[in-house]
């Protein structure tokens, strides 16, 4: 009982601290926007360096979906709708969710570790003593870069999965679905608001991952163990929140 309430108290304290921290970051965002060079630098770190894993995963997810979908659809003689099947699943669910999970593992963990180490080696207090606010100089640009990167990476994931290498490669080039039908069906069935909803999801996931990783890094205990714990928590907590939040968002969007 008391252990349970301790955990609850600890959780609420953390939540309060994280919320307050988020407000501090949001207040620092306008200032960060005035220094695009810092954001571009971080975009490279969280975005460009995540590209490979996103491109490869997107391609394989698309190929797997095409294989699985083709088998099922052929029972109903509906293989011409393969494009619709792949694109619906990818755009509505897999692109935002899988990208978010990969992003948390690749970029979120790196952010938390980097910030945690900066703290442990006095770099953050060093900045403070030079009258430079680490939230403005270090946290805000990283937060923004993660926000911007998520929808972009999600789009790249979707394009790879549906078109370039994934569904198209297996469905059209290997299994012989007509190319015109593949794209025509997608064009006819996939509505713009599917795409918009997908991007909204990815934006939400981006906020969650960016928030959790900078929070975990900034409030890590300044030790090797503290940094390692921050890194792990970032991946675990982000992943759980992403899948939970996905359910909530999906429920709202398909009312």
């Amino acid at each position: 009982m008391s252990r349970g309430s301790n955990i609850l108290a600890e959780f609420l304290r953390g939540l309060g601290q994280a919320t307050f921290f988020l407000l501090t970051i949001v207040r620092a965002l306008p200032g960060a926007l005035l220094r695009p060079r810092l954001i571009v630098q971080q975009l490279y770190h969280v975005g460009v360096l995540s590209l490979i894993i996103i491109v490869i995963s997107g391609s394989f997810v698309g190929m797997i979906l095409a294989l699985q979908g083709y088998r099922t659809l052929s029972h109903f003689g509906a293989t011409s709708t393969l494009g619709v099947f792949v694109s619906f699943v990818v755009v509505r669910e897999l692109a935002p969710v899988v990208t978010a999970l990969l992003f948390a593992g690749r970029a979120g963990s790196a952010l938390a570790a980097e910030i945690g180490l900066m703290k442990a080696t006095d770099q953050l207090s060093g900045m403070e003593m030079m009258a430079v606010d680490p939230v403005k100089r270090v946290i805000a640009p990283r937060f923004l870069a993660a926000l911007i990167a998520m929808p972009l990476l999600t789009s790249i994931f979707a394009v790879m999965a549906i078109g370039v290498a994934g569904g198209h490669l297996i469905g059209v080039d290997l299994l012989g679905v007509d190319q015109g039908t593949y794209w025509g069906q997608i064009h006819a069935e996939l509505r713009p608001h599917d795409v918009v909803e997908s991007l909204i999801k990815s934006l939400f996931f981006g906020i969650v991952i960016a928030w959790i990783s900078v929070y975990q890094g900034y409030f890590a205990a300044p030790t090797s163990e503290g940094v390692s714990r921050a890194t792990t928590s970032t991946v675990v907590v982000s992943s759980l929140i992403v899948v939970g939040l996905d359910f909530v968002l999906t429920a709202f969007m398909f009312r």
Binding site: L117, M118, T121, D122, Q123, S125, G126, M127, M129
Partner: peptide, 9 residues
């Protein structure tokens, strides 16, 4: 001047 230097790595 920090004991550790605290340079930005």
């Amino acid at each position: 001047l920090f004991q550790s230097g605290a340079l930005l790595t």
